[in-house]
């Protein structure tokens, strides 16, 4: 199941675990990233919590946790090479895997068509 948030994150949900990243639209808006800070494995967040930070030449932006859950894996490849987020935001540039506290909450997120409508 592929879902999106109004904060421009995508979630690919399999067996109660969501792989989370930022959308192509978000990566284009941010521009070339020079720094990514990821949460620690084992950290828990509520929906809307500051889970990660991305920085372009110009500015820092927060990446919010899209649902309640626990971080079970992080993508260290993007901290080593933040440009991966720009080159493949919805693939190799994923941020973290989140074990969802309440998998049913994902139903309320945007589907791909609704997200595409949001960003025009």
């Amino acid at each position: 199941m592929l879902k999106f948030t109004e904060e421009h994150e995508w979630l690919k949900i399999e067996g109660g675990v969501a792989t989370v990243g930022i959308t192509v639209h978000a990566a284009e808006q941010l521009g070339d990233l020079v720094f990514v800070e990821l949460p620690e494995v084992g950290a828990t967040f509520e929906k809307g919590g500051d889970a990660a930070t991305v920085e372009s030449v110009k500015a820092a932006s927060d990446v919010y946790c899209p649902l309640d859950g626990e971080i079970v894996e992080i993508n260290e490849a993007i901290t080593a090479d933040p440009s991966l987020v720009n080159s493949d935001p919805q693939g190799a540039g994923w941020f973290f895997k989140l074990k969802l506290a309440n998998p049913a909450d994902a139903e309320a997120l945007l589907d791909e068509a609704a997200y595409k409508e949001l960003v025009g």
Partner: peptide, 12 residues
């Protein structure tokens, strides 16, 4: 204009 098509990094 804050940036053009190339983006801040390439422009710099």
């Amino acid at each position: 204009p804050v940036q053009y098509a190339a983006g801040v990094m390439k422009e710099h």
